[in-house]
Amino acid sequence: MYYQGVLRKMQTEFAEPIQYFLILENDFLNLNQILGKTLSLEFIKHQCLNCGLNKPIYRQGFCKSCFFDIPQAADWIMRPELSTAHLDQEDRDLEYEKKVQLQPHVVYLANSSNVKVGVTRKTQVPTRWIDQGAHEAIEIVEVPNRYLAGITEVALKDHVADKTNWRKMLKNDIEDENLVEWREKLKQFIPDEALDYFIASNTETNILFPVNHYPEKPKSLNLEKETSFKGRLVGIKGQYLIFEDDTVFNIRGNEGLVVKITID
């Protein structure tokens, strides 16, 4: 049995464990159901998620020309503090920017490889935490726009990490932390503009991933370079497929690749 289509980040359903779905043009796969089975991955071509052309993927699933043109790839996506829609100032497309930036955003603490601070739209809770491979997370503030979330994250980055160590996350080399205590400790560093939005009541969200075996020395698969790979699927965490031989494949990091997937 085989499937073919352009890779987009796996869709998830919050359950115990998390349910993972790979959505293709004409099919979808519940990946939890094929744990323990052998998968073959074959690189076919590129397909930019914006223009659809067979052009090398530059970043975030987009070809280079689209990446530097479309609002979905503007700098404020990765750096929320650069958001300007609340000032009625356009970056690339003010209508799009207002739609995305002028909605509730959450600043959170997540523990995947270490405690880190991050920003996401409220509608992306807990999806964002799942995508990062966090086994526990908690909200700090809920603000009405992306800019306020961004300046809060910048202020807190001086006191807590803002990056995930993907190898440590995949090895499950983690320690449980008291995120409520972390939140209270960081409250003093929240900017005045966002302090009224501090959340004092929420408890931690705990996340269980469908992993039968964690890799001891995870090695990342470059499917464009190797063109094909075959291995037994033993786990899924974050946006990574984990195989029996310690190979890991980042689905989100390979968005825009058209692949053929064969299940033995």
Rank of each mutant, 00 (worst) to 15 (best):
R128F: 11
D264V: 10
E224R: 15
I140K: 08
V154Y: 00
L35W: 02
N254L: 06
N145Q: 05
K99T: 05
G235I: 10
L156V: 11
E90L: 09
A194C: 03
E216G: 13
L7S: 00
V160Y: 03
V234N: 04
M78Q: 07
L208P: 00
V6S: 15
N50D: 03
F68M: 08
E153G: 01
Q60M: 15
P126E: 05
L49G: 06
H46E: 07
E204Q: 13
N172R: 00
G61M: 10
E42Q: 15
G61K: 05
L241N: 07
A110C: 02
P218M: 09
I199S: 03
L24R: 03
D264G: 11
S220W: 05
P126V: 04
E153L: 12
D27W: 14
D176K: 13
Q103L: 02
K98C: 05
Y58M: 04
K9R: 14
E139P: 09
F14H: 14
I199E: 02
E13A: 08
T38A: 06
E224H: 08
K9A: 07
Y214K: 11
Q4I: 14
G61L: 08
Y96D: 01
V106A: 12
P71L: 03
R183M: 07
L221N: 12
I18C: 02
D196G: 13
I151T: 12
L31Q: 08
H86R: 14
L31D: 07
W76A: 11
G133N: 06
A73N: 13
L24I: 07
N54T: 01
K157A: 03
L94I: 15
I140L: 15
Q89T: 13
A74N: 02
D91M: 01
I199T: 00
M169P: 07
G235S: 09
L221S: 11
K219C: 08
D173H: 11
K37A: 11
Y2A: 00
G150C: 09
P210T: 12
N30W: 01
N254W: 04
W76H: 15
D264M: 06
R146I: 07
P126Y: 03
G52F: 12
L241Y: 02
L7G: 00
Q239C: 11
G52A: 09
P126R: 10
Y2M: 06
E204G: 04
Q72C: 01
E255G: 10
V180L: 05
K225I: 09
I130T: 13
K116H: 10
I44T: 07
Q19L: 13
L221Y: 10
R121M: 10
Q124Y: 00
R92T: 07
S40P: 01
E177S: 01
L35T: 06
A110H: 00
Y147V: 08
A149P: 12
M1Y: 03
D88N: 15
L241D: 14
S112H: 04
Q101L: 05
Y108M: 03
